[in-house]
Design a protein around this nucleic acid. Structure first.
Length: 406
DNA sequence: ATGTCC
């Protein structure tokens, strides 16, 4: 067995797949808070990229019965990864990759695309292409159902954010696998509208519980009880936002491939071994013979044979993995390497020169605004992969050659 | 992460 069990007074046990990886005391304390919630099913499962989050810990799997915690999913509902293997190899790429990066940056609006009309439109389409209109039309019936009851959600970037990257940690990469096959990989979520849905229901949960909220270990553990009106509405809205996030990644991948075709002479296809997985979401699943709501906050589903994506930091390796269906981990794995220091600490400790050296082999931004993404601010990905060897096996090892940061 | 009556 490659996991440790920590017993919690007046709570469910915590099972940690963190062998050889440091777990901060603040993250441990937060896990113990969550483990005390009476509706946790069996135990919490902790992934090796665990670190402190808002309300509950990033890199954890929170199975519940009869209740749901909206702040555990958080505001970037449906955030996740998509990767597609192409029929290209490294030799088909141009010698200078700057043109490929520019083509991708033009094809996909991102955080640094200038605001269109107001700052609120940052990173949005000015005029969404037809494929985005068609995708939005397929999402609209669900959105109309939600906004009929929660009209304030209409006033969000929804249609104009579909197929756009966002900012911060969201990125698009061109990678090479162990056989020099070219892959496209991207990381994004449900953008403005998912954020608004997350925030709305986090507020509603706290308002619904205002009489008892002082009894919770943390106000961000406020929950909806199954059978209540807001529980049903949240399950509906969070599921819709997760669909939006998945389709957001689908649209971007199509546009990344189209951009690449503009600068790569050789014809190619890109749907070989496509993977599209959430790592910030909740859904109903069956575990140990019972129906359970499984919240994965910075964790990926890893049922037996299921493909997933574990990205390393900028300049480190990333992995396409196959689930081993480890039931004790509720069939899950980590969603990345995990930070080893805060963004602020990384900015204090490293310089632009350090970032240039650490990303010498990658065509990417190397300015002061991305120092917090420097590889040294992340845990050792080899240790993280070793700690979860009973959760997933590696199918492909990818190294980045181009990285577009939002 | 997003949006900006913080």
């Amino acid at each position: 067995m490659s996991y440790q069990v920590q017993d919690v007074t007046a709570g469910k046990p915590i099972k940690l797949w963190t062998e050889g990886v440091p777990v901060e005391d603040d993250a441990r304390k937060q896990l113990m808070n969550t483990a005390q919630m009476p509706f946790i099913f069996r135990h919490l499962a902790v992934m090796p990229d665990v670190h402190l989050g808002k309300g509950s810990t990033i890199g954890s799997v929170i199975p519940t019965q009869g209740a749901i915690i909206p702040a555990a999913v958080g505001v970037d509902i449906g955030c996740g990864m998509m990767a597609a293997r192409t029929t290209l190899t490294a030799a088909d790429l141009p010698d200078n990759l700057h043109g490929l990066r520019s083509a991708i940056e033009t094809a996909v609006p991102h955080g640094r695309t200038p605001p269109r009309q107001s700052r609120r439109d940052k990173g949005a389409w000015e005029n969404p292409p037809e494929a985005v209109d068609a995708m939005w039309a397929s999402l609209l019936p669900g959105f109309a159902r939600i906004t009929e009851k929660y009209p304030r959600l209409k006033n969000t970037n929804n249609h104009k954010h579909l197929g756009t990257l966002g900012t911060g940690n969201h990125f698009i990469e061109v990678c090479l696998d162990e056989a020099d096959h070219v892959w496209f990989m991207l990381h994004s979520g449900s953008r403005g509208v998912g954020n608004a849905i997350g925030n709305l229901f986090i507020e509603l949960a706290q308002a619904d519980m205002r009489q008892h909220i002082a009894n919770l270990p943390d106000k961000d553990l406020a929950y909806f009880e199954e059978g209540s009106e807001h529980f049903a509405d949240y399950v509906d809205a969070v599921g819709w936002a997760q669909d939006y996030a998945r389709r957001n990644r689908d649209v971007m991948m199509v546009n990344v491939v189209a951009a690449a075709r503009q600068v790569i002479a050789k014809p190619f296809t890109a749907d070989v071994e496509a993977v599209n997985c959430h790592h910030n979401y909740v859904q109903r699943e069956t575990h140990f013979g019972s129906e359970v709501l499984v919240t994965r906050k910075g964790a990926v589903s890893a049922r037996k044979g299921e493909l997933g994506i574990i990205p390393g930091s900028m300049g480190a390796r990333s992995y396409i993995v196959r689930g081993l269906g480890n039931e004790e981990a509720f069939c899950s794995c980590s969603h990345g390497a995990g930070r080893s220091m805060s963004r602020n600490e990384a900015r204090r400790r490293f310089t632009v020169d350090d970032q240039i050296k650490a990303t010498a082999h990658v065509e990417c931004r190397k300015d002061s605004e991305v120092i917090d993404e420097i590889p040294m601010a992340y845990k050792d990905i080899d240790a993280v992969m070793h700690a979860q060897r009973e959760l997933v096996e590696v199918v492909h090892t990818l190294r980045q050659v181009v990285c577009v940061k939002g």
